[in-house]
C-alpha cells in the first residue's frame, strides 16, 4: 500500500496497547534508580546553574525571580526530552535491533497497538522526569502552591504529543544517524523558541507568531502559570493545540509504522 492509503486509514484503537506499556515499565523498573537519576540530573543542573548564575545578571523576569521563571520552563523541556529520547532511541532499538515489535506482532497485536503503547510509555517517562523536577522545585521553594500539581496531567498530554512527533521520525528512520536531523532541525529550535529560558515576548514579532505553532510553547504557557501562581491566558487554546498534536502525530506515526512493517 502507498503512504496515502495508510494515512487515509484511521488507527484502530484498542486497550491492547497496555501490554506494550507494561513491558516497558517492567524493563524500566529493573533500572529505575539510575534511570531517574540520569534523566533528571541534567535538567536539574541546568536549573541550578542557569537559574543561579544567569539569575544574578537577569534579576526578575515577568516580575518573578529568574530561577522561578526558569523552573517551569525546565519542567517542560525535561518532559520533551524524556518523551523524545524514549520514542526515538529506545523504540527504534525495539523496532530494529531487538525485533521486539516483530515478536509483539506475532501475538494478537496490531502495529497501531504497538505504536500507541510506545507513545504512552514515552509520555509516562516524560511524566516521571518532569515530576522529579517539580518535586525539587517545590523543595527549593520555586513553586507557588498546590495547584502546581495540575502541571502533571498537562505534562502527560505534552508527553503524548512529543512522543507522537518523535514516533513519526522513528517510523521513517533508516538508521540512528537520522535522529540527528530531528534534533538539529526540530528539537533545538523548539527548545530555544518556546519561552523555556526567556520570555517569548523578547523575540521579534515574526518569530513569536511562528512559535505559536510549536507545541512546547503552548505547554510552557500552561505550565508556567500553574507553577508560579499566575492566571492562564486562553487555556483551551493551548490544550487544543496539544490535543491536535497528539491525535495527528499518533495517526501519522501509526500509518508510517504500518507502511514500514506490514509488507
Amino acid at each position: 500500500m502507498k503512504v496515502l492509503d495508510h494515512l487515509r486509514q484511521p488507527p484502530a484503537l484498542s486497550l491492547r496497547f497496555s501490554a506494550v506499556w507494561l513491558r516497558n515499565l517492567r524493563v524500566w523498573r529493573k533500572l529505575m534508580l539510575p534511570s531517574i537519576l540520569g534523566n533528571f540530573g541534567e535538567p536539574l543542573l541546568y536549573l541550578l546553574a542557569l537559574g543561579y548564575g544567569l539569575g544574578q545578571f537577569v534579576g526578575e523576569v515577568e516580575s518573578m525571580p529568574y530561577m522561578v521563571f526558569l523552573a517551569s520552563g525546565i519542567v517542560c523541556s525535561a518532559a520533551m526530552t524524556g518523551a523524545t529520547f524514549e520514542a526515538l532511541y529506545s523504540a527504534y532499538t525495539r523496532l530494529t535491533q531487538q525485533q521486539t515489535w516483530a515478536a509483539m506482532l506475532a501475538a494478537p497485536m496490531n502495529v497501531d497497538d504497538v505504536v500507541l503503547g510506545e507513545i504512552v510509555w514515552a509520555a509516562t517517562k516524560a511524566l516521571i522526569n518532569a515530576s522529579a523536577i517539580v518535586l525539587v522545585a517545590a523543595l527549593l521553594g520555586l513553586v507557588a502552591g498546590p495547584e502546581a500539581l495540575l502541571v502533571l496531567p498537562v505534562i502527560l498530554l505534552a508527553g503524548l504529543a512529543f512522543a507522537g512527533i518523535a514516533m513519526i521520525v522513528t517510523a521513517l528512520s533508516p538508521s540512528y544517524d537520522f535522529f540527528l536531523y530531528y534534533f538539529t532541525l526540530v528539537m533545538t529550535p523548539m527548545l530555544l523558541l518556546s519561552g523555556v529560558f526567556f520570555p517569548l515576548s523578547s523575540l521579534p514579532e515574526a518569530v513569536q507568531i511562528g512559535a505559536q505553532g510549536l507545541p512546547l510553547a503552548h505547554v510552557v504557557m500552561l505550565v508556567r502559570p500553574l507553577m508560579t501562581g499566575g492566571g492562564i491566558d486562553a487555556p483551551l487554546l493551548h490544550l487544543g493545540v496539544i490535543l491536535v498534536y497528539i491525535v495527528a502525530t499518533y495517526w501519522i506515526s501509526a500509518a508510517l509504522a504500518r507502511r514500514r512493517l506490514i509488507r
Binding site: 513491558r23 516483530a102 506475532a106 501475538a107
Partner: peptide, 27 residues
C-alpha cells in the same frame, strides 16, 4: 502460536519474564 525463522526473544528479560511478558501480549 508462532515460532519465527529468526529468534526474537526479549533481551531485556530473563527466561521466566519472557514467558510472562509474551503472555501479556495475548491478554
Amino acid at each position: 502460536g508462532i515460532v519465527p525463522q529468526f529468534d526474537n526473544l526479549d533481551p531485556d528479560f530473563s527466561v521466566r519474564e519472557n514467558l510472562i511478558t509474551y503472555g501479556a501480549y495475548y491478554g
